[in-house]
Design a protein around this nucleic acid. Structure first.
Lengths: 237, 237
DNA sequence: AAGTGGTCTAGACCACTCA
DNA sequence: GAGTGGTCTAGACCACTTG
């Protein structure tokens, strides 16, 4: 991999390997070649290959264990998905939320959607309405918007549309960080009926943008939540 | 620094340098010795010194810039402090909060304080009551508990007691991550009077533990907040 | 015993900053 | 041009896991 690019070798190598993971050429749970083999395959020194692997580990695409090897993470299981489930029990345990996808539409982005998703005027988006259930009791309704370019044919995937992690894996998008904003608001007629609270009661509004690992916004979501008996959890790093 | 410890050299080196920063032997803003000099001073190879420096950068104790050098971060300015100010304007801007310290007491920890701060039964704590102001309007009241062992003589430092970052610097404690939990609650008589809201109105309860870089809990705080017109901001990483 | 990642060494050269 | 951190190389040895 000498090539002509002046970009650091370890970053180029990291990108190639990330792509193999995104496209599932390297499958979740499988072992990567060892450091020496990777270095030979790509024509770099072992130290450079190691640096790329360390970066993949930082990105949470692989885990490494001394004496065992490097393994592709399952991007749709455990904490990698739970980290976006910020509504939990007081002890941090999952509320075992079910998701009901109410509606999916493909429409041009509004001005606000363009701004939040870094799109150009008129770019198409998928807009998804969901209801989150604790057991069979709805506690949050969500409006989510996603760039159509990243998820072509999403309207046929309504079982995936409820969870960004599943969607992202299906379309080969690597999920990165998100930022969330919380306010309180009086429940509108629609919200009160969906959540089974009084009209005008205080609900919590969760406004969130999730980015891909490469920094592109992949989902903007607003949720109206009846927080009764539950907690929002955040890490400050 | 050969010594007899089997702990990785770069971690030992990192710890020594972190201590120099905590104790202000290396002052905020000042330049560290260059990589080669550090390696010679500690008797390790340049690569090992570099690894320790990279770790200090990850811990946000130093910043490094190609062509310039490595510099000690000011632990009490800018984003290093703001990250704990999770209540902000909608755009993420600061609410320019003032802090009024209402009361400081030194008492044995309650069972709950022991649990949240990982203390033993009867260990002394400082308990601080504060009011946060937007302009001159109170929007949050806080009860904070801190292990007395980490902050000896805190009761004489009431100007510092309002901000954990100032306190930590004064006592040579390096601040690490925190975790916060949010619920809604009806305002008690006391809360409603402090915040100027109706008794029984919905307020937001912020329950937070901050850890030192070495993992020891340094502050447990509960805040009752009138979120009207403001937003809670969180990063999901 | 063989294979893996983790640590450590000792250099080389490059890109950037600043006097 | 001198000095800094950033990249890259090419090894050695250690600690851990597994058969």
């Amino acid at each position: 991999m000498p090539a002509f690019s002046r970009r650091p070798l370890y970053l180029q190598l990291c990108e190639v390997m990330a792509d193999r993971i995104a496209t599932r050429a390297w499958k979740p749970g499988s072992a990567l070649p060892n450091e020496g083999d990777l270095a030979r395959e790509f024509g770099v020194s072992p130290g450079t290959a190691r640096k790329a692997l360390e970066r993949l580990e930082q990105m949470r695409l692989i885990t490494r264990r001394q004496g065992r090897g490097s393994f592709v993470c399952d991007l749709t299981s455990g904490e990698l998905v739970d980290r976006f489930a910020t509504i939990r029990r007081a002890d941090g345990g999952s509320v075992a939320a079910g998701v009901r996808t109410v509606e999916i539409e493909r429409v041009p982005a509004t001005a606000e959607e363009c701004a939040r998703l870094c799109l150009a005027h008129g770019d198409p988006i998928y807009r998804v309405r969901r209801v989150l259930l604790a057991g069979d009791v709805p506690f949050m309704i969500e409006n989510a918007s996603m760039p159509a370019a990243l998820f072509p044919g999403l309207e046929q995937q309504d079982t995936l549309a409820g969870q960004i992690a599943l969607l992202a894996r299906h379309f080969g998008v690597l999920v990165g960080r998100g930022s969330e904003r919380i306010a309180t608001e009086r429940a509108s007629r629609e919200v009160s009926e969906s959540l089974g609270v009084a009209e005008g009661a205080i609900v919590v509004v969760l406004d969130r943008v999730i980015l891909a690992l490469d920094g592109r916004p992949i989902e903007w979501r607003i949720g109206w939540c009846n927080l009764a008996g539950m907690h929002y959890h955040a890490q400050i790093t």
